[in-house]
């Protein structure tokens, strides 16, 4: 199996009120240098070894997992995972 880890964040330039609140809380709690905090989503899944991961993940993200109007995504693949 292949293990796929997908990371979804708001696009650069899109206001992230959650990231801003988290950053302000961090700054108020002894981390004054924290900057550009963004809160995103992490999704993991397995796909069969024969899957065309690049194509499948792209289709899944475009159709459902990410909203291209405001979000962007990246992913990593680990091959040869035993079930």
């Amino acid at each position: 199996m292949k293990k796929v880890k997908i990371f979804i964040t708001l696009k650069e330039g899109v206001l992230d009120p959650q990231g801003k609140a988290v950053q302000e809380a961090l700054q108020a709690n002894g981390f004054p240098d924290v900057a550009e905090t963004r809160v995103g989503k992490y999704i993991e899944m397995t796909l069969p070894d024969e899957a065309d991961v690049a194509l499948e993940v792209q289709r899944m993200c475009d159709k459902l997992l990410a909203n291209p109007v405001m979000e962007e995504y990246s992913y990593t693949v680990e091959e040869g995972i035993r079930s």
Partner: peptide, 17 residues
């Protein structure tokens, strides 16, 4: 309707959360 693309745009969390 926004998510289906029948209307353009998207919804973010309210500015003040």
């Amino acid at each position: 309707l926004l998510e289906t693309g029948l209307l353009p745009g998207a919804m973010l969390r309210n500015e003040k959360l």
